[in-house]
């Protein structure tokens, strides 16, 4: 049985847990380490993808379609977030001539 998805038998779901944890931690470390706002947005996309991968893995392992529907909605929100975030970055670049977050401290009291 289970011939449709041989990965279910070859790979325990723990491996997907570790992989997603590693990818998410890399995203968090990138947000903390980099100062370029565009790379920050890319690291946020990386974190969203780690969560997406885990949602899909659990959805397949548990035989429930809701997880994959949730991934679909996360992709929708990620696309909207990227478009609005990049528009904001373009505006910031027009006003400040930089996208380095170290220099974007105008709201500091």
């Amino acid at each position: 049985m289970n011939s449709a998805i041989p990965v279910l038998q070859a790979i325990p779901i723990d491996n997907y847990l570790w992989l997603s944890a590693i990818l998410f931690s890399i995203g968090v470390a990138g947000v903390l380490m980099r100062r370029n706002a565009i790379v920050l947005l890319m690291c946020i996309e990386l974190m969203l993808n780690a969560v997406n991968l885990l949602f899909t893995a659990f959805s397949t392992y548990l035989g429930d379609a809701s997880g994959q529907i949730m991934v679909f909605f996360i992709m929708v929100v990620a696309a909207a977030e990227a478009s609005v975030g990049l528009a904001i970055l373009v505006m910031i670049y027009r006003n400040h001539k930089t996208v380095d977050v170290s220099f974007l401290d105008k709201l500091r009291g």
């Binding site: 449709a4 998805i5 779901i13 590693i22 931690s25 968090v28 659990f58 397949t60 035989g63 429930d64």
Partner: peptide, 28 residues
């Protein structure tokens, strides 16, 4: 970031999730 990874690995270490019977066809 490394500390976050260590925390997640430590908290997920004892997970024991088995595929359920409904997942057998894999067509979802």
């Amino acid at each position: 970031g490394g500390l976050l990874l260590v925390t997640m690995v430590a908290s997920l270490k004892h997970s024991a999730i088995q595929p359920v019977a409904g997942a057998e066809d894999g067509q979802i």
